[in-house]
Design a binder for these strands. Structure first.
Lengths: 237, 237
DNA sequence: AAGTTCATTTTGTGATCACATTATGCGAGC
DNA sequence: GCTCGCATAATGTGATCACAAAATGAACTT
């Protein structure tokens, strides 16, 4: 009656412990590797909102047959990273002010808690890791590299939340990030990354002081500041 | 450049307005109907946690070919309603104390807010509807019908949250409900439904008074009370 | 010029097949 | 009685084909 251990322990990085590889091993199914590839393209701004997506098109661009692409796309639709229209066509969802507001609410409701739950397991090794990531964020911001900024910003949060070992909450947050990735990239493409502020220092010192309240607050403010910047740039309230 | 309207507006009922049909129309794809069928079985306790699930087995039991089942199962795995093991086999996930705690947190973080957002759009028609649903909950509880109780309890919350028109938050909540459905059914099968209390009256009167704070509080307490009952029955803390 | 019709192409969906991997059941051996 | 080894069955994965529905683009009409 022995069942195998859980393989697909998450749909994304937030539920994985820091050391785990997000890149699927070569022996993993093709649809899994396709999923990870598409996931990264969505997360780091490789897709434009509203852009139509076809199974055969993706299959050709990835050098695989349409079958595993079909499965990966079905997964991405399920977590709302892609959108299925009633003409059965698939596209990258467009952002709306309403959806954006829901995303901000959900991020604030879940991510600070995830950070607090991760705090007891953030040792010196993990702190050093996120400091190195933060250096890369600075580099990307100043060199005006939106995709690099998005990649390292995600890596920063991922490295923290992953330590919480909270797979269920992590999966929810993962779905949310997939939903604002393409939009975020569009905004940065329009206004640049040079006016961004790095809010992560306060979080890092809070970790060092093992101050849960301050850590939670720092993450919340990082989210609010970042999302306000994006929201104001796009919806000019 | 006209794209079709959004079809699969949600993966579940929480994102749908009250009047919308959750049963897919006959012209919808087979994989969609299979998804809805499996979704209901999970949500209302038709599956036992830990139970292995096979594509061909489901296909036979549903009278369809394995192909659309494969797609529906892939979706359910993506929202963590099913679990993919590293031996590539699929099963209904087992509950753990840790996962249960995360689910309670997420429910309390998201569902009361969804209720508040729905309040302005809850008219007399909607109130009457949830009162009728609540009557069915009472009947199911007293007649000791766990599946009926679960169905109507879900319908109650669904009728409220659906009015919020918050598809993004609704999808997150939907995923959460799918994750504790089978476990809930197991507990009720062991301890029965007769000792449950109906906490919904306070919510209904709060709606009538258009009191957002009380409404939010009533939903939060309904969640806490219900989940505490389940948690204590299963994990005997 | 702008809209319309119609033939062609593209696309998602479902069925079916082949195959590698894993589970299962049975028998032999200690 | 219990464990190990092996033959058999079952399962997920991927490829390929057929088909209906929808998009596309060119020719034609107004």
């Amino acid at each position: 009656m022995t069942r195998g251990a859980i393989h697909n322990v998450s749909n994304g990085a937030f539920a994985l412990p820091t050391g785990a590889k997000s890149t699927p091993s070569p022996e993993s199914p093709v649809h899994e590797r396709v999923y990870q590839a598409l996931r990264e393209r969505i997360l780091y701004g490789g897709f434009q909102p509203g852009r139509p997506v076809t199974l055969r098109g993706l299959a050709d661009s990835l050098g695989v047959s349409p079958m595993p692409v079909r499965e990966a796309v079905r997964r991405l639709i399920a977590v709302r990273a892609l959108e299925l229209h009633d003409n059965r066509r698939v596209s990258v969802p467009a952002m709306t002010a309403r959806k954006f507001d829901e995303i901000v609410f959900a991020r604030l409701a879940l991510e600070p808690e995830l950070a607090v739950r991760a705090l007891p397991r953030m040792g010196e090794a993990e702190i050093g890791q996120i400091e190195r990531i933060d250096d890369q964020i600075e580099v990307s911001m100043q060199s005006g590299d939106p995709e690099g900024y998005m990649r390292y910003n995600h890596a920063f949060h991922s490295a923290i939340y992953g330590r919480a070992g909270s797979e269920t909450l992590g999966a929810l947050v993962d779905s949310i990030w997939l939903q604002f990735g393409p939009f975020m990239r569009t905004v940065y493409g329009r206004v640049g990354t040079s006016s961004l502020e790095d809010q992560h220092q306060r979080a890092i010192t809070a970790i060092r002081q093992r101050d849960a309240d301050r850590f939670k607050q720092a993450i919340a403010e990082d989210i609010m500041q970042g999302m306000r910047f994006i929201g104001e740039s796009a919806f000019q309230r």
